[in-house]
């Protein structure tokens, strides 16, 4: 059964660095040969990660990018280091870009470390400014 999952999602495993080559000559259950394992920087992956990956693919068969927890942590770390830091003044364009980028995300609500990206502050419903000096839509100047 697991073999069938792997064979169905060979691209996912390829993306994750597990190079699995099927050999259709073999009988079912013996068709998969692992030729390469992922490696990134100092992070070393092992068969346990492949195991987890198989499990995740089994849970979310339609997902394009499935990553094992080790890879997720690694990506989160990299993303955190490379993104805009707090304390940096942003131009209007940059802010716009950041906000628009949020629209295209899968889950824009919280960052990979669990920090919320945005909060609802308040609503400006029926906001009326101070208009006691307004007369017929114009500012009334006292004494005139």
């Amino acid at each position: 059964m697991e073999e069938s999952i792997v064979l169905d999602h060979l691209d996912v495993f390829k993306l994750n660095g597990f190079d699995i080559r099927p050999s259709l000559d073999e009988s079912p259950g013996k068709r998969c040969y692992l030729h390469a394992i992922p490696m990134s920087g100092n992070t070393v992956f092992s068969l346990s990660d492949l195991e987890e990956l198989i499990h995740l693919v089994q849970l979310h068969p339609d997902k394009k990018s499935v990553r094992c927890s080790k890879a997720r942590a690694m990506f989160a770390m990299r993303a955190c280091r490379s993104s805009i830091m707090i304390g940096k003044a942003l131009s209007g364009k940059m802010m716009e870009k950041v906000v628009r980028n949020l629209g295209g995300l899968d889950k824009p609500w919280s960052c990979p470390h669990g920090r919320p990206t945005m909060r609802h502050l308040t609503e400006l419903g029926g906001w009326t400014s101070w208009d006691e000096d307004m007369v017929d839509g114009q500012i009334a100047i006292p004494g005139v």
Binding site: V98, K107, P116, T117
Partner: peptide, 12 residues
């Protein structure tokens, strides 16, 4: 909107 968190999420 947290600029760091949102950008981090995007990068991630």
């Amino acid at each position: 909107i947290d600029q760091h968190a949102s950008d981090e999420k995007y990068n991630f």
